Structure formats: C-alpha cells, structure tokens
Amino acid sequence: MAKRRLQLNLRGFQVFEAVARHLSVTQAAEELGITQSAVSHQLRNLTDYLGEELFERQGRSIALTRAGARLAEALDGAFDLIEQSTASTIGLNRRMIRVALYSSFAAGWMIPVLPEFTARHPDIDLRLVMISDPPEISDRVADVFITSEPTRRGYWSLRLFPEYLVPVAASTTCRDGFDRPVPLITSETDPVMVGADWEAFAALNDLDLPTIRDGAWHCCTHYLLALEMARAGMGAALVPDFMAFPALARSELRRLPGAALPTGQTYDLQIKYERRKEPDIQRLVAWIKDVVRRNTMSATHVTA
C-alpha cells in the first residue's frame, strides 16, 4: 500500500525557518529573494494552518513563541538532513569536510600543520570556514567546529587545550624586557576594557602596569592583528601561545618575561552527535588529537 503524506505548504515552512533563524522578516526576505510582504503572507498562512502563534512582538523586534521555538528546532534538523542528502546525491560533499574555526586558530595552529593531514589523506577535501563570536553552529555552515563556545545541544565535544596568552615583541625591540617602559598592544577595544589583558598579566606577574607601559595603547580587535603589530615593531602584544610559537622558533619575535596568562577560554572541537562516527570525520578527529598530544609533549606552551 502506497504511503500517503499530508499536503504541506513546504514553502511556508521554508520561510518560517529563515525568519526564525534571523529573527528578522527583512533579512529572511533578502535571503530567500522575495518581498517582505510575501514573507508575511506565508507566515500568516502557516499560523492559520497550525493554529499556533509562532512569533511575538518585543518592542521593535520579534521573538519565537514556545510553539515557534519547537517548530524551529525541528525544522533546523529536517533541513540539515535534506541538505546533507541532496549534497550526497549530487556529490557535493563526497570526501569533503568543512571545518569552521577562528582566524587566529586557523593561522596560528591549523594551517601550519595542515600539510601533514593532506599528505596522509589526499583523497579528503578539507575546507576551512572562518567564524566569529558567536558562531552559527549548524550543518549549513560546517561539518566540524573548533570554538570556545559552550557545547550546543545535539553536539559531541572534545576539549583540545586551554588558552594562554604570552607577551611577545619583535626581535629588534623591547630588548630589555620590562626593565624600561614599552608600547603595549591590546586586543581589548571596548573603551571600558582597553588594556584589561595587560592588567591581568601585570597582576599575575607582580608588575606595575603604569611603570611598564610607554605611551598610548595600541588597540586591535583580533589576536592575529596584535601578532602582526608586534612583528612590525609597534610594541609588546599578548597573544595565544600556539600563535606565538612558530614566530618565536623562527626568531621573528622574542618571548618577554612573565608567566603565561590563562584566559579561562578553551578550544573545543564540536561535531553533530550523529555524525561523529563518519569515517572521514573520525580520521580528522584522530589526526587533531594526535597533533595536540605531540604538541603537548613538545611543550608547545611557551614558557618564560
């Protein structure tokens, strides 16, 4: 006997999923390539069909109702499954893994060791996807995530290592360490938080911050920029140890004195739970674990 299905308005569910993801009719309309009035029309029809209010107004913004949140969660998984199946059918994701990660982690840790993985697994197409905080953790973005975010429900997580900041400067500058004032580069750009990283470092190492800082703060938004500013001779920067290690090994930077500063952040690998045993993903995870183990044994955390 042939299976019978409900006559569903799939377009309405697609429109709802886009609005729920963006919490914006305007952005959903832009993504779907339709007008805002068409989006509103589909939402009204779906609300009438389900007999449930899916959104509620909160000032000028919208929020999901309890029923809307349940539907959004169900549709997220359903659309992820459809996208995976479609991609597999047409061969888009065959032997391909998308890895989402921060720019600092990509440049400072992943890319330097990546040739080893491609040499071991030349048949796996590894694609790096840049993310920023807070990242969208979804199959629409990537297959594997390396983030500092709490593990999302439905995802398996593996702790890689904690984050430590170390002070570095160009080999030609700051030769006396902190014996005399030096320009300081901070990755804290919030006016209230400028220099908070150096304040914590100074407190940890019993240093008087006003005494060691020379001139105004040099501010940037990312560790990657701070590293390049230090390399350019603009002053001393606090950057993750794994980012500093290659430049220190090449004598492009000098490690300044002081204990490494723990930030309380960790780098964790996250994979959707039902995908963690896919053979290629297992190969990638095993390789990452091996690299982390070898780096730990080699004292990747640069000491004073």
Rank of each mutant, 00 (worst) to 15 (best):
Y49Q: 15
A107P: 00
R140Q: 07
E83F: 03
D123C: 03
A119H: 02
S132K: 12
H41P: 00
P134A: 10
D133F: 06
V141P: 05
R175D: 09
M110W: 07
L126R: 08
L71H: 11
T118A: 04
T151C: 14
R94W: 13
P181M: 11
Q36E: 15
F117C: 05
L54G: 09
R153D: 10
I146F: 02
D143W: 02
S148N: 09
F178R: 10
T35E: 07
F178A: 07
L64M: 12
G108C: 12
D133N: 11
P162D: 07
M110L: 12
P122L: 01
A100V: 04
M96S: 13
T173P: 01
F117H: 02
D125R: 13
R98H: 10
E73Y: 03
D76Y: 01
I137M: 13
I62Y: 10
L71K: 10
I124N: 02
L92C: 05
G77I: 02
V141F: 01
A67C: 08
S104M: 06
L64Q: 08
L46I: 15
S138A: 13
M96N: 00
R175I: 01
Y164C: 00
S148C: 12
E73F: 06
F145V: 02
A119Y: 01
V168K: 07
A107G: 05
G108A: 10
A170V: 04
E149Y: 02
D139T: 06
D48M: 14
Y155C: 05
L165E: 07
L64I: 13
S88Q: 12
G91L: 12
P134R: 09
D125H: 11
I82F: 04
A142R: 11
A69P: 01
E73W: 04
T151F: 06
E136V: 15
T151P: 02
D179K: 10
I124T: 04
R98F: 05
A119I: 01
A106F: 12
R159Y: 03
R140F: 14
A67S: 15
P181T: 14
P135V: 07
S138T: 15
A142F: 08
N93L: 06
R94S: 13
L43N: 06
E56A: 07
D48E: 15
I82G: 00
N93W: 00
L158A: 08
Y102R: 09
I82D: 00
V39P: 06
L64E: 05
V129P: 00
W156H: 13
L92D: 04
S37R: 15
R44K: 15
L64K: 12
A170G: 12
T172W: 14
G154V: 05
L46S: 15
D179G: 14
E53C: 01
R175K: 14
V99G: 00
G51F: 04
E163C: 00
D48G: 09
S40D: 13
D133G: 03
R153E: 11
A142C: 08
R152I: 07
